[in-house]
Simulated scan of single mutants.
Amino acid sequence: MKSLTSEWGRYGLRFNCIAPGPIETEGAFSRLDPTGNFKDAMYNRIPAGRLGEVEELANLASYLVSDYSSWIAGEVIAFDGGQYTYMAGSFSSLDKVTNDEWDSLEKLIRTSNKKSKL
C-alpha cells in the first residue's frame, strides 16, 4: 500500500488496505469452525470482547472509498477489535492477573521504590 501510494499518489490515486479480524458469517464459520470451539477461544484474544460484524466492515470500506477519507493514503487499517496489538504485546497476559494479585504487585513496587530512594 505504501509503495503504490508513493508511486501513484501524484495521479490522485489512493491505496489503503483493511486487515480484518474475525467476523462471523455463516459460510466461513460453518466451514472453518463447525464445532464452535475456535470461536469461543477467539473471545479471549480480542480486547473488545466480541467478533466484528459485516456491517461494520462495510461501513469502514464505504468511508475509505468516499471523499471524506481523501487524506488517508497508504494505510493498513487493523479492523480487529484490538486483537493484533493484543497478540503482539509482551505483557498481554497481564489481563489474567486478579485484583488481589495487582494489589500485591503494587505493594511490592511501592516498597521497592521507597528503598531505591534511600
Rank of each mutant, 00 (worst) to 15 (best):
S69I: 06
Y43D: 04
S104P: 00
D95H: 15
T98P: 06
N44A: 15
Y43R: 06
L118Q: 11
E106M: 14
A61F: 10
N99R: 09
R31F: 10
D80A: 01
I46H: 02
E101T: 07
K114S: 06
P22V: 01
M87G: 08
F29K: 01
R110A: 12
A78D: 12
F79D: 00
G89T: 03
A28K: 05
I18L: 10
R45G: 00
I77P: 02
N44G: 11
W102M: 08
I77N: 02
Q83T: 06
K117W: 11
K96F: 06
W8C: 12
S66V: 03
K114G: 05
A61R: 00
G52S: 02
G49C: 07
A28F: 12
S70H: 11
A41R: 12
E101L: 13
Y84L: 01
S3Y: 07
G52E: 03
I23L: 14
P47I: 08
A73Y: 05
L64H: 05
A58W: 07
A19Q: 09
M87S: 13
R10T: 09
S6K: 12
W71E: 03
K107I: 11
T111A: 15
G82S: 08
T85K: 01
S90V: 04
M42P: 01
E56T: 06
A19S: 15
R45N: 03
Y11Q: 10
S3W: 05
E26G: 05
F79N: 07
T5G: 14
V97K: 09
G82C: 10
V54C: 08
L64K: 02
M87Q: 12
A78F: 05
E106N: 08
Y43W: 06
A88C: 12
M87D: 07
D103Q: 11
I23C: 03
L105I: 15
E7N: 14
R110W: 03
S66P: 04
V54W: 04
D95W: 06
S70N: 15
K115E: 13
G82M: 06
S93T: 00
A19M: 07
D95Y: 04
E53A: 07
S116D: 11
E56P: 01
R10D: 12
D67C: 05
A73D: 11
D95N: 15
A19V: 07
C17Q: 12
D103C: 09
S30I: 02
M42F: 09
D40E: 15
E26I: 01
